Simulated assay, not measured.
Amino acid sequence: MERKSIIDKIKKLREHSVERGATEAEAIAFALKAQKLIADNGIEEWELEGGEPDEVARVYAETKIRRAWLRLLFSVVAKNFRCRPVLTTTADGKRDIPTFLGHRSDAEAAAIVFTHLLEVGHKLGKRHEDDFYTDPDAYENFVRGFVCGVAMELEKQAEALMLTVPQDVEDHVRKMPLRNAPAPRRIRENAASMARGCEAGQDAVRARRIAG
Protein backbone atom coordinates (compact mmCIF):
# COMPACT_ATOMS: atom_id res chain seq x y z
CA MET A 1 0.00 0.00 0.00
CA GLU A 2 1.38 3.41 -0.99
CA ARG A 3 2.17 5.88 1.78
CA LYS A 4 -0.53 8.30 0.60
CA SER A 5 -3.15 5.54 0.76
CA ILE A 6 -2.03 4.63 4.30
CA ILE A 7 -2.25 8.27 5.37
CA ASP A 8 -5.74 8.58 3.84
CA LYS A 9 -6.83 5.44 5.70
CA ILE A 10 -5.51 6.80 9.02
CA LYS A 11 -7.35 10.07 8.46
CA LYS A 12 -10.62 8.20 7.87
CA LEU A 13 -10.10 6.12 11.02
CA ARG A 14 -9.52 9.26 13.08
CA GLU A 15 -12.75 10.79 11.79
CA HIS A 16 -14.72 8.21 13.80
CA SER A 17 -14.93 10.12 17.09
CA VAL A 18 -17.61 10.34 19.77
CA GLU A 19 -18.16 13.97 18.74
CA ARG A 20 -18.97 12.78 15.23
CA GLY A 21 -21.47 10.13 16.29
CA ALA A 22 -19.35 7.06 17.04
CA THR A 23 -19.89 5.13 20.25
CA GLU A 24 -17.07 5.07 22.80
CA ALA A 25 -16.38 1.44 21.89
CA GLU A 26 -16.10 2.34 18.21
CA ALA A 27 -13.93 5.39 18.91
CA ILE A 28 -11.41 3.41 20.95
CA ALA A 29 -11.30 0.63 18.33
CA PHE A 30 -10.58 3.10 15.54
CA ALA A 31 -7.98 4.88 17.70
CA LEU A 32 -6.10 1.62 18.31
CA LYS A 33 -6.23 0.69 14.65
CA ALA A 34 -5.00 4.14 13.57
CA GLN A 35 -2.18 3.95 16.13
CA LYS A 36 -1.04 0.60 14.73
CA LEU A 37 -0.93 1.96 11.17
CA ILE A 38 0.97 5.05 12.32
CA ALA A 39 3.54 2.96 14.20
CA ASP A 40 3.85 0.27 11.49
CA ASN A 41 4.60 2.83 8.80
CA GLY A 42 6.42 5.55 10.76
CA ILE A 43 3.77 8.14 9.92
CA GLU A 44 4.27 11.56 11.52
CA GLU A 45 1.51 13.92 12.61
CA TRP A 46 2.62 16.62 10.16
CA GLU A 47 2.08 14.19 7.30
CA LEU A 48 -1.51 13.64 8.41
CA GLU A 49 -2.17 17.35 8.61
CA GLY A 50 -0.24 18.24 5.45
CA GLY A 51 1.87 20.78 7.30
CA GLU A 52 5.03 20.95 9.34
CA PRO A 53 6.28 18.29 11.78
CA ASP A 54 4.02 17.92 14.81
CA GLU A 55 4.89 19.76 18.00
CA VAL A 56 4.50 18.31 21.47
CA ALA A 57 0.95 18.86 22.72
CA ARG A 58 -0.94 18.51 25.98
CA VAL A 59 -4.24 16.63 25.82
CA TYR A 60 -6.42 16.63 28.92
CA ALA A 61 -8.46 13.59 29.92
CA GLU A 62 -11.40 15.03 31.85
CA THR A 63 -13.19 12.51 34.05
CA LYS A 64 -15.59 12.57 36.99
CA ILE A 65 -13.98 9.48 38.49
CA ARG A 66 -11.80 10.49 41.44
CA ARG A 67 -10.00 7.32 42.44
CA ALA A 68 -6.31 6.99 43.26
CA TRP A 69 -5.89 3.96 40.99
CA LEU A 70 -6.46 6.09 37.91
CA ARG A 71 -2.83 7.18 38.22
CA LEU A 72 -1.74 3.59 37.68
CA LEU A 73 -3.89 3.24 34.55
CA PHE A 74 -2.83 6.71 33.41
CA SER A 75 0.83 5.73 33.47
CA VAL A 76 0.25 2.43 31.64
CA VAL A 77 -1.75 4.01 28.81
CA ALA A 78 0.69 6.91 28.37
CA LYS A 79 3.66 4.55 28.06
CA ASN A 80 1.96 2.49 25.39
CA PHE A 81 0.88 5.50 23.32
CA ARG A 82 4.32 7.17 23.15
CA CYS A 83 3.32 9.80 25.72
CA ARG A 84 4.37 10.97 29.15
CA PRO A 85 1.75 11.26 31.93
CA VAL A 86 1.52 14.63 33.67
CA LEU A 87 -0.97 15.74 36.31
CA THR A 88 -2.17 19.29 35.67
CA THR A 89 -3.56 21.06 38.73
CA THR A 90 -6.72 23.12 38.18
CA ALA A 91 -6.66 26.89 38.78
CA ASP A 92 -8.36 26.50 42.16
CA GLY A 93 -5.81 23.86 43.18
CA LYS A 94 -8.52 21.40 44.22
CA ARG A 95 -7.90 18.59 41.74
CA ASP A 96 -5.49 17.19 39.21
CA ILE A 97 -6.38 16.52 35.59
CA PRO A 98 -4.64 13.59 33.84
CA THR A 99 -2.74 15.13 30.93
CA PHE A 100 -1.04 13.25 28.11
CA LEU A 101 2.09 14.91 26.79
CA GLY A 102 3.08 13.76 23.31
CA HIS A 103 2.55 14.24 19.60
CA ARG A 104 -1.09 15.23 19.17
CA SER A 105 -2.21 12.05 17.37
CA ASP A 106 -0.67 9.89 20.12
CA ALA A 107 -1.96 12.04 22.98
CA GLU A 108 -5.51 12.25 21.64
CA ALA A 109 -5.67 8.48 21.12
CA ALA A 110 -4.26 7.92 24.61
CA ALA A 111 -6.89 10.19 26.17
CA ILE A 112 -9.73 8.31 24.43
CA VAL A 113 -8.40 4.91 25.47
CA PHE A 114 -7.64 6.00 29.05
CA THR A 115 -11.05 7.56 29.66
CA HIS A 116 -12.87 4.54 28.28
CA LEU A 117 -10.83 1.99 30.23
CA LEU A 118 -11.13 4.04 33.42
CA GLU A 119 -14.92 4.02 33.15
CA VAL A 120 -15.03 0.30 32.35
CA GLY A 121 -12.68 -0.60 35.22
CA HIS A 122 -14.60 1.56 37.70
CA LYS A 123 -17.97 0.11 36.69
CA LEU A 124 -16.75 -3.49 36.87
CA GLY A 125 -14.90 -2.80 40.12
CA LYS A 126 -18.06 -1.49 41.80
CA ARG A 127 -19.97 -4.54 40.57
CA HIS A 128 -17.26 -6.85 41.91
CA GLU A 129 -17.31 -5.01 45.25
CA ASP A 130 -21.04 -5.66 45.58
CA ASP A 131 -20.70 -9.35 44.76
CA PHE A 132 -17.39 -10.26 46.44
CA TYR A 133 -18.18 -9.23 50.02
CA THR A 134 -15.59 -11.61 51.53
CA ASP A 135 -12.83 -9.25 50.38
CA PRO A 136 -12.85 -5.96 52.38
CA ASP A 137 -10.75 -4.31 49.64
CA ALA A 138 -12.60 -5.93 46.76
CA TYR A 139 -12.83 -2.79 44.61
CA GLU A 140 -9.18 -1.80 45.02
CA ASN A 141 -7.92 -5.32 44.41
CA PHE A 142 -10.08 -5.68 41.32
CA VAL A 143 -9.11 -2.37 39.68
CA ARG A 144 -5.41 -2.90 40.35
CA GLY A 145 -5.71 -6.29 38.71
CA PHE A 146 -7.60 -4.56 35.90
CA VAL A 147 -4.64 -2.22 35.31
CA CYS A 148 -2.27 -5.21 35.19
CA GLY A 149 -4.48 -6.88 32.58
CA VAL A 150 -4.60 -3.71 30.49
CA ALA A 151 -0.81 -3.38 30.73
CA MET A 152 -0.26 -6.97 29.61
CA GLU A 153 -2.36 -6.48 26.48
CA LEU A 154 -1.16 -3.01 25.52
CA GLU A 155 2.48 -3.93 26.05
CA LYS A 156 2.15 -6.84 23.63
CA GLN A 157 1.27 -4.31 20.93
CA ALA A 158 3.91 -1.80 22.05
CA GLU A 159 6.65 -4.45 21.96
CA ALA A 160 5.50 -5.81 18.61
CA LEU A 161 5.54 -2.32 17.10
CA MET A 162 8.69 -1.28 18.99
CA LEU A 163 6.98 1.86 20.25
CA THR A 164 9.12 4.37 22.12
CA VAL A 165 8.48 7.88 23.43
CA PRO A 166 9.83 10.38 20.83
CA GLN A 167 12.95 12.27 21.88
CA ASP A 168 11.31 15.70 21.53
CA VAL A 169 8.62 14.59 24.02
CA GLU A 170 11.29 13.42 26.47
CA ASP A 171 13.16 16.71 26.08
CA HIS A 172 9.96 18.69 26.70
CA VAL A 173 9.26 16.77 29.92
CA ARG A 174 12.80 17.36 31.24
CA LYS A 175 12.22 21.12 31.06
CA MET A 176 9.01 20.95 33.09
CA PRO A 177 8.79 21.43 36.88
CA LEU A 178 7.37 18.11 38.04
CA ARG A 179 6.20 16.77 41.38
CA ASN A 180 5.58 13.26 42.59
CA ALA A 181 1.96 12.17 42.99
CA PRO A 182 0.98 10.28 46.15
CA ALA A 183 0.85 6.53 45.73
CA PRO A 184 -2.46 4.64 46.11
CA ARG A 185 -3.11 3.47 49.68
CA ARG A 186 -1.89 0.10 50.90
CA ILE A 187 -4.48 -2.66 50.85
CA ARG A 188 -4.80 -6.28 51.86
CA GLU A 189 -4.21 -8.11 48.60
CA ASN A 190 -6.73 -10.71 47.51
CA ALA A 191 -5.53 -12.99 44.71
CA ALA A 192 -9.04 -13.91 43.54
CA SER A 193 -10.16 -10.28 43.19
CA MET A 194 -6.95 -9.30 41.40
CA ALA A 195 -7.18 -12.27 39.03
CA ARG A 196 -10.74 -11.34 38.08
CA GLY A 197 -9.67 -7.75 37.54
CA CYS A 198 -6.71 -8.81 35.41
CA GLU A 199 -8.92 -10.93 33.19
CA ALA A 200 -11.40 -8.06 32.83
CA GLY A 201 -8.60 -5.66 31.87
CA GLN A 202 -7.32 -7.99 29.18
CA ASP A 203 -10.84 -8.50 27.85
CA ALA A 204 -11.47 -4.75 27.74
CA VAL A 205 -8.46 -4.19 25.47
CA ARG A 206 -9.03 -7.32 23.37
CA ALA A 207 -12.67 -6.39 22.77
CA ARG A 208 -11.69 -3.02 21.34
CA ARG A 209 -8.92 -4.58 19.23
CA ILE A 210 -11.34 -7.17 17.82
CA ALA A 211 -13.95 -4.49 17.19
CA GLY A 212 -11.35 -2.59 15.18
Rank of each mutant, 00 (worst) to 15 (best):
E52F: 15
A61D: 00
Q167F: 15
P166D: 02
E199S: 14
A107Y: 07
A39E: 12
V143N: 03
K12P: 01
V59F: 13
P177S: 08
A204S: 05
N80V: 03
P98C: 09
A109F: 07
E155W: 03
A151E: 09
K12L: 12
L154N: 00
V147Y: 02
Q35M: 07
I65V: 04
G50K: 14
R127W: 08
V147A: 07
R144Y: 02
P166G: 08
C148A: 15
L117R: 03
A160W: 06
L124P: 04
G125I: 12
A78C: 09
R186I: 14
E55C: 10
E15W: 05
A211E: 15
A138G: 13
R20S: 14
F146A: 02
L118D: 11
A151L: 04
N180K: 15
C83M: 05
A200E: 05
E189C: 11
D137H: 05
A57K: 13
L13P: 01
Y133S: 15
V173T: 09
A181K: 07
K4L: 14
L118R: 04
R82G: 04
P85T: 12
I6H: 04
R66F: 01
D137V: 04
R186H: 14
I65N: 02
S105M: 04
I38G: 06
A200R: 02
C148K: 13
L124E: 10
R186Q: 14
I65S: 01
R186A: 14
A151K: 11
F81A: 01
A91W: 03
Y133Q: 15
V120A: 05
G201P: 00
C198N: 12
K175D: 10
G51E: 15
T90F: 00
L72D: 04
T115H: 08
G201C: 01
A109T: 09
S193M: 11
G197W: 03
L178Y: 03
D130L: 10
T115A: 05
V165F: 01
D8W: 06
Q202Y: 06
E170Y: 09
K126F: 14
Q202A: 12
P184I: 00
L73D: 00
E52T: 15
E159L: 06
M194G: 10
V205F: 06
L87P: 04
F142C: 06
D131V: 12
R188N: 15
L154G: 00
R20C: 09
K79M: 07
A109W: 06
L87D: 09
A34N: 00
R14D: 01
D135F: 07
N80E: 05
A160V: 06
H16N: 15
V205I: 06
G42A: 11
F146M: 00
A34P: 00
R185V: 07
L72T: 01
T99M: 03
L154K: 03
T88P: 01
I112V: 12
P85N: 10
L48E: 01
S105W: 04
D96C: 05
E129I: 08
E119R: 15
